[in-house]
Write a protein that binds this DNA or RNA. Structure first.
Lengths: 132, 132
DNA sequence: ACTTTATCCGACAATATTAGTCGGATATGC
DNA sequence: GCATATCCGACTAATATTGTCGGATAAAGT
């Protein structure tokens, strides 16, 4: 049904939350999870992932938490989505080679065309376009 | 990962196959399934679905099979995909009302914007654009 | 030093979705 | 009537997503 995963949704919600804070103020996983009713552990992983990718900063220890690091205007949405939920494509056939159809498939080219159109949508969009 | 279901792929492959035939010539499920290594029963259902939606014609009995009915230039891709795999959207929140986030969600609007962009891609595309 | 609270991380379990199967019906040409 | 086609609902299997658990490391406060 061509949908984004919850992890991406949670990531966006969290980023938007962080944007409402002052540059230096930290938000903990718990704080965000409770504010939006998101499972803590799952949100935690998503935040960790974003921290590893330098979208946000992580500060450990008590009084720790996360704060925005990157300039959202510079984060491409294709990259962002792929960072969180892996390769972005209409079909599997671009990633794994073992497709029984492979040789006989008559829609490889057209599917590829559509694929590009979809990717283009996200390529021409930055995180800033979404989080405001 | 934002992908189409196999059913849609199979549908497109089948339609493309039918296009290679003369207007009056029939192709059976078995013939198509074997040509592209698609599970017969699954393809059968997809073809039946398309027949019900008057994209193709079904002829029963031995010597029966399917042939193209609709003008592919007139079939919008959004409609086609939704016909086969149901509602097309980036998130569930547009369909079911029971989302725990609902009230507190801070990304409803932005997600909706992206959603429209994606739908636009398929809206501005007909079956003919894909099957050639 | 110890306790508390935070990030960090891998492995696991539950759930939902998709893919594929099966049994039996109806239609029709021979 | 037999063979072969579409038709259709219900079922099972496979896969992917979502959520949970246990335990580690980091650092602030006492």
């Amino acid at each position: 049904m061509l949908k984004l995963t919850r992890k991406v949704e949670y990531a966006l919600i969290a980023l938007r939350h962080l944007q409402g804070k002052k540059r230096s103020q930290l938000s903990s996983t718990k704080e965000i999870a409770e504010a939006y009713h998101i499972p803590v552990e799952l949100l935690a992983k998503t935040l960790q992932l974003m921290a590893r990718n330098e979208i946000i900063d992580a500060v450990q220890g008590p009084l720790g938490g996360y704060r925005i690091k990157a300039d959202f205007h510079e984060i491409n949405m294709t990259d962002f989505i792929e960072m969180i939920e892996g390769p972005l494509g209409l079909t599997d056939c671009h990633f794994d080679t073992e497709c029984v159809q492979a040789n006989t498939c008559n829609i490889k080219k057209p599917i590829n065309k559509v694929n590009k159109s979809i990717r283009a949508v996200f390529n021409n969009m930055t995180l800033a376009d979404i989080t405001g």
